[in-house]
Each structure stands twice: as C-alpha cells, then as structure tokens.
Design a protein around this nucleic acid. Structure first.
Lengths: 122, 122
DNA sequence: AAAACATGGTATCCTTTGGATACTGGGGCT
DNA sequence: AGCCCCAGTATCCAAAGGATACCATGTTTT
C-alpha cells in the first residue's frame, strides 16, 4: 500500500529538481557573489579563486538556463560579459539563506558525526 | 582587491557542503519519507519505487555518516533494519521545507525559462 | 618586432560518480 | 525441489565533474 500521495511525490520531485540545480559545488557561491550587483566573468573567477574556467562557464550557463541569472555581452575591446541575478535569482536567496543559517549552525555536528563514523569503520 | 571576507567564504563552504550532501537525487525524498517515523530498507525502496538497491544503500549510509539518520539492526529472521531520523535530521527538515515551498512556487518559472533557453539555442 | 597579458570562452582528456544488473546467504512457504 | 523475502555486496558501464591546453582579438611591455 502506498501512503505517499501523488501531490507529495511531485512536490518532492520539484524539491529534488531545485536542489540538484542549486546543490552542486559552485552555484550557491556564485549566487551569493552576484547578490551585490552584476559581475564580469573573470571578476567572479578571481573572487572564487580555485574554480576552473569550464566550471564557471557551465555553472553560469546553468543559472542562465533556469532564469536565475542574465548574461549581457558588451562588444567592446576587450569583450565584457556581465552576469546579474534576475528577480527569480534574488528570490532564491531567501530560502538559501535559511539553509545557510542551518548549515553554519550545524556543520560542526555533521563534521564530528563524520569523523566518528569514519573512525568506527576501521 | 578581495571584497569577500574570510567568514563569508567559510560560511559558503559550509553551505555548499550541506547542499551537496542534501542536493543529490534521493536524499531529500528519503528524509521526507522518514519524517513520520522509522522505516525499513525495503519499505523505503517500495515507496520510492524507481530507486536501485545500491543507491538507497549509499544514500542511507551518507545520511548515517553525517548523523542525520540512525541505523538499527534487529538480528531476527528475516533480518530487520530500521532507519530513523535523528534530532539533527528532523532539524534539517525546517530549512528544507523553506526550499521546498520556494521550489513548488517557482518550478513553473524555472521550467519555462529552461524551455525558452533550450529553444533559443537551436 | 616579439613576447606577454587581458578578455571570455571551447576542446580534449581523464577521473569520479551515478546507476542498472546480477549475485549472496540464511530462512520460510508450497 | 524450487521459489520468495530480507538487506545488502560486487561488478560493470554510462554520465558527469573537473584539470589542462588552446582559441581569437587586441593592448601593453620589453
């Protein structure tokens, strides 16, 4: 017997969908960096520091595809490309903030649980 | 010049860390299913439906490792293994709920942005 | 004049991860 | 005897992540 309603299930699908959009290695970082205003490609790259060009490109493409970020090309010399959060992107920062607070509050517990678990597996 | 403070950066690390824990294909679904009480392995498997044994095992191991779920083995015949949310795991549901609400509210916008983007790429 | 640097990217390659399928092993059911 | 249930491993292949090298254009440096 299935106790899970169809609505619950599709809701979970949506959540999983959004989480796998947002839950990769760089997306949240980029969204946070863009929250103060538009930024150029290499500006983001320098701020993040240890991201490869390819990953920054694909992260930004993904955000653009989902309507969270706009990409504006200025055909100057040298070329200039600005990335900026859309309203939807700025909106996303609210629930992410909630998760960020939880993460900061509990990352210690998680890390010690991990250490304990890994030690027991020896 | 770096405008990103060290505190901001480590906070983002923590958020990314938690998100990549939670942001995979199955974790949120499992946490939601466990929120009504303990469940057995195959009980979860049947409810989720299209998950492989391996993925369910590794999802649950990950949650256990991070202290979000407990695993209890009853050496009965047939064996019985219960999975249950810890306090930390139940705690996590609060910020995830926030993201879930956002996801349900905005999944439509995201999907149409995707469709639009993919159409333009032709 | 040649070298080096800046811009915002592709292309290529390899490693890591995701996931389907098959198998284990003890017991019970028919 | 042959099948199913339980909670998993083991194996293998496809997909994704990610480092490195390269591109075209133009300016600055040596």
């Amino acid at each position: 017997m299935l106790t899970l309603s169809h609505r619950d299930h599709t809701a979970c699908q949506a959540v999983s969908d959004v989480l796998s959009r947002v839950g990769d290695k760089w997306t949240v970082l980029v969204v946070e960096l863009l929250s103060d205003g538009p930024m150029r490609f290499n500006e983001l790259r320098r701020l993040i520091g240890n991201i490869s060009q390819k990953m920054l490109t694909s992260t930004l493409r993904g955000l653009e595809r989902d309507g969270l970020v706009t990409r504006t090309v200025y055909p100057t010399i040298p070329p200039r490309v600005d990335y900026e959060l859309t309203d939807l992107g700025r909106d996303l920062r609210v629930p992410v903030k909630g998760l960020a607070l939880w993460a900061r509050a509990n990352i210690g517990k998680i890390n010690s649980a991990r250490t304990r678990f890994d030690a027991d597996q020896v």
